[in-house]
Amino acid sequence: MIRAVRFHGRGGQGAKTASRILGTAAFIEGFVAQDSPIYGAERRGAPVAAFTRIAKEPIRERGLIACPDLVVIADASLIHDPAAHALDGIDDRTAVFVNSPLTGEQFQALASLPGRLTTMDLTDIALQQFGKRGAISALLGAVAGRLVGLRQESICEAIARELADLGLAASVIERTQTVAAQCYEAVQMVALDTSSREPAAPVQLRAPTYEPPTRGTARITAGPNSAIRSMAGWRTFRPVLRPDLCNGCWLCFAYCPEGVISMNKDDRPVIDYAHCKGCQICVHECPTEALVAEREKEGAVAWTAK
């Protein structure tokens, strides 16, 4: 028997740690476990996936989980990002958890996802309880643990081990365990269907043929390296200009690592929100506090950072 859980998040949200919490909890309960993350060059906000397998026998699988029993989506904006592949392999037997303020029904109506959907607003819980967004790994792990049928005590023990590994203080760990336990209790259950699937049929292979180097080499021929791909979903916070406070010093323009701030003829910054990744460097550098960070929340700005 094997349980295959796939986590999707953005760098910094804790998808990898969540997958480890789940793996450790399963291991504590005597299962063979395997967990692994996959990500690109290290950066906050970029799509990250992590995989946890739980079995009674040695696991003869590695890496990508193509047909998950449970998918945990830490950031709803990943659902419609084709690069994240969050919906791959989900069918009507797959359980799907989405970190969202919407209920499962509301979400379903909005996004019409395949799979058996359940939701909870873990980001809001983390912001309320810990005052920061990065702290949802334990909550994701707790929710996943509940959905695959692991015990609350093993999840709490796993949270302690994994967060201690990350160097967190005992008091923080204890607080996290308490909040995670609440999430464990509160998540609305959906049934897991892990009956064995049809074995895979041989796939059709199609090797690429030779194409001229204009197509056959990896290169970028445009200024922005992702001109038609929006990075807006990377943000938890967006920088917003309060024009009356701006003194036109150009510091935000100089410090923006993405080059998405341009200056208009009145020396005021104009932010390209399609490519701003929400790093907040401009907000921190602005000497007059003319730039403020506002929480992105499913379209409307609902929470303003201190």
């Binding site: 063979v32 476990a33 967990d35 692994s36 996959i38 590695r62 890496g63």
Partner: peptide, 8 residues
């Protein structure tokens, strides 16, 4: 990745 970052 398949071993370096994989726990078992």
């Amino acid at each position: 990745f398949y071993l370096s970052f994989t726990r078992e």
